[in-house]
Amino acid sequence: MSPNKPRVLVVDDEQAIRRFLHLALTSQGYEVSEAASAERALALATSCRPDLIILDLGLPDMDGVEVTRRLREWTQVPIIILSVRGSEGDKIAALDAGADDYLTKPFGVGELLARLRVALRRLPHPGSEPVFTGGDLTVDLAHRLVTVCEREVQLTPNEYDILRVLVTHAGKVLTHRHLLREVWGEAYELEFHMLHVNISNLRHKIEPDPTSPQFIITEPGVGYRLRVN
């Protein structure tokens, strides 16, 4: 057991899903511990200090959103939510409570591993990288410079702020509320339309094809995510 292996805590009440995740993750070099209930999960989170938690929203003994909230009281460990389709409300609640990302069951291992890598990569220096590069898009946070194909793009202050927030959380899904709060402040948390209009304008400026975005990905009903390669 190498101390460098990232530790992942898998919380799901279905044994088959735990087994499948255990196999998939250990084969990729992760160290996996399992919990079948929220109570056990909270206990394990304190005792084995995982580097990442995969948390199912539908636990028998406690609401997954509540588990997220309790974890966030003392730890910033990345949390990836597993949910079923149709429970967008719970998903948003968990993300707003501090979860980092979500996956809708059923999901492929490739997708899960990609999300895991994104969540873990952010861990050591959150938002500290001064320059983001993804494909043809470069965002220099230090100089407030945005270029597409090495051509400078003029953004309004709000558009730049949205992009800045997305870049500092690259790969992570950000809820509408989160973006509105970060860019405009808490008083504007429900002005969803303002956000949509700005995102639309931003896409027209930085996306090669705004109707099939390469950088700013829509998470239907939840929020937006900046794609990382």
Binding site: S200, T211, S212, P220
Partner: peptide, 17 residues
């Protein structure tokens, strides 16, 4: 139905995605 204002182009993009 939880309505929100959506750009139609975005719907097409997400569906194709």
């Amino acid at each position: 139905i939880s309505r929100q204002l959506v750009e139609v182009g975005d719907i097409v993009g997400v569906a194709l995605g």
